[in-house]
Amino acid sequence: MAVAAPAMHHKGPDRTAINRLGLWLFFFSESLIFALLLSSRFFLEGLNIPLKHGSDEQAVDQVLGLAITVILLLSSVTAFTGETAFEHGRKRLGHWMILATIVLGLIFAGGVAYEWKTAHFTRGEAFGTVFFTMTGVHASHVMSGVIMLGLVWVQALRGKYNEKNHWPVSGVVMYWHFVDVVWVFFYPALYLV
C-alpha cells in the first residue's frame, strides 16, 4: 500500500483525505458493476451490433450516440472548470459552471430517453437487453449525479463553500467524471464495435 504514510500523524489524519480515499474505493467497487455489464454484453452478443430488421443498417443511431457522447464530454469540462473555480475562490464562475453541468447532464439523459423511444430493437432480445440495461444503469448514475449537483449548487448559492472548504463540490464532480469514464467504455461497446 503506497498510501501508508499518514498513519504516523500525531494530530489525526486530514478529513478530506479520508473522504477522498473512501470515494475512490466506492468508484473502484462501482466500476465492477459496469465491467461485469460490459463483459455480459460481449458474452451474449460477441463483437456485433445487430442490423435493423429488414435492412442492412445498424440498429443504433450513430449520430445520436456521437452527439450525447460529446455532450457528456462537454459536461465534464464544465464540471472540471467549476471545481477549479471553487478551489480558487471564484464562486460566481463556479455557480454557473455547476449549473451548466446540470443542464448538460439533463440533455444527455434526454438523449438516452430519445434513443430508448426510437430504438429498433426490443428489450426482449439479447442486444436490447444489454443495451437497455447498460444505458439504463448509466443514465441512473447520471440522474443521481444531477441530483447531487443540484444539492451542491443550492448550498453553493448560499455561500457554504470557499477555497478552504469545498469537499462536497469536489466529491460530486469526481463522481461526475467517474460516470463519464464509464461512458467512455460503454459508448464504443454499444455503438462502435
Binding site: 503506497a2 498510501v3 504514510a5 499518514p6 489524519p13 486530514d14 478530506t16 483525505a17 477522498r20 480515499l21 475512490w24 465534464s76 464540471a79 472540471f80 478551489e87 478552504k164 469545498h166 469536489s170 469526481m174 467524471h177 467517474f178 463519464d180 469514464v181 467512455v184
Partner: peptide
C-alpha cells in the same frame, strides 16, 4: 486522461495536501 487530470487520482497518494 480523465482519471488522472480531471479526477486528480494522484491526490490519493498525497493525503497531506489540503486539496
Amino acid at each position: 486522461l480523465i482519471v488522472w487530470y480531471f479526477m486528480h487520482f494522484g491526490r490519493v497518494f498525497r493525503p497531506e495536501e489540503a486539496h
